[in-house]
């Protein structure tokens, strides 16, 4: 069933008419050409599809379009401003926290949400907070360092 929906996407108001049961992930990727959110599993197990809705990390592969009416959606594409990387993005670059990089947008958005809840997470809190994100290249050691550096950069930026 098609529905007319309004929401804010990366700071811009949008109105679309589409099947209400389509996933947010599919609409972002196919209708808005925002391909930073990735398909990894379709069952909310890997979080490669993470986007922020009203500032909270959400698995867009499990989110139907009917759920985003009136909400504020931010994707990885909205983070860097005028070519300047977000501190969390910068930390991932600095620590070489990527191999194939396919999980990285989801890791970065999950990290932003984690640091919003807890600006100075311990190693155990980072592990707990990102355990839902799979990196199949298993570059977890560098990602952990990147999150620690991101916390430091974010505190300094304030």
């Amino acid at each position: 069933m098609k529905a007319s929906l309004q929401f804010t996407l990366n700071g811009k108001p949008q109105r679309v008419t589409t099947e209400a049961k389509r996933t947010l992930l599919e609409v972002l990727r196919e209708d808005f050409d925002l391909t930073g959110a990735k398909y990894g599993c379709g069952e909310g197990q890997c979080r490669a599809c993470t986007v922020l809705i009203d500032g909270n990390p959400v698995r867009s592969c499990l989110t139907e379009m009917s759920e985003v009416e009136g909400r504020k959606i931010d994707t990885i594409e909205s983070l860097s401003q005028n070519g300047k990387l977000h501190p969390v993005q910068q930390a991932f670059v600095n620590e070489g926290a990527m191999q194939c990089g396919y999980c990285v947008p989801g890791m970065i958005l999950s990290t932003i949400a984690l640091l919003k809840r807890n600006a100075s997470p311990t190693e155990a809190q980072i592990v707990e907070g990102l355990n839902g994100n799979i990196c199949r290249c298993c570059g977890y050691t560098n990602i952990l360092k990147a999150v620690q550096r991101a916390a430091q950069l974010s505190r300094e930026a304030k």
């Binding site: 930073g36 994707t75 990885i76 990387l85 991932f92 990527m98 990089g101 947008p105």
Partner: peptide
Amino acid sequence: AADIVTGAH
């Protein structure tokens, strides 16, 4: 690396 962290790649 910048293209990967911005989702541009």
